[in-house]
Amino acid sequence: MQIDKETVRKLAHLARLEFDENSAETMVNDMNRMLDFVAKLDAIDVSQVEPLIYMNEDVNVWRKDEVINTITHEEALKNAPKKDTDFFRVPKVIEK
């Protein structure tokens, strides 16, 4: 597997990141080096092994479904980069 600029462009789109020409080049190199590094995993056959997905041992941890008002409307808007009295503001999404 070799990462090229096109792959970096696609991945950047998926991750909602942007790279200019120079940093895209650096990213291609860095990612290829990292893929070479993780290629050590090729040495082990795990075709018969189940993946380990959950690290916690407890299953079905229940608690009462109680309504708690953890934050107020005002608090929720507190850290918004842009807001009005009631809402988060974002640039226009749908053009008329």
């Binding site: 597997m1 993780v38 995993l41 795990v46 092994v49 189940e50 997905i53």
Partner: peptide, 15 residues
């Protein structure tokens, strides 16, 4: 690439 990388690493994690 999911199976070859992420999935495989999860299996090695169990081992």
């Amino acid at each position: 690439y999911y199976d070859a990388f992420y999935g495989k690493a999860q299996k090695v994690r169990r081992v």
